[in-house]
Amino acid sequence: MSEDGGAMNGNRNGWPLWEVFVRPRRGLSHNHVGSLHAPDAELALHNARDVYTRRQEGVSIWVVPAQTITASSPDEKDAFFEPAADKVYRHPTFYEVPDGAAHL
């Protein structure tokens, strides 16, 4: 098992990781809701709809390849991954469901 940053290069054989952002309805911003694996952007969008919105209508979804996100988080004491401290590859999280999106 690679626990020393093996995931930094993404999955060797598997599909890449995508971060999913959802705007539950007009007037609200997109919020991070989680992540998933998909081979490409279109299937990532399909999967995001299936997994994170149960295909609720009217929501707006962004999917972003996790590897393309650049991060800064001085509050987090990142000693372990120092060489790639601006990356969030391994960063899928489950922030609270956006306001007003009780059924997400």
Partner: peptide, 11 residues
């Protein structure tokens, strides 16, 4: 073939 597709086919 993959977990995400399990969810999609069930939907």
């Amino acid at each position: 073939p993959e977990l995400e597709e399990d969810v999609a086919l069930a939907n």
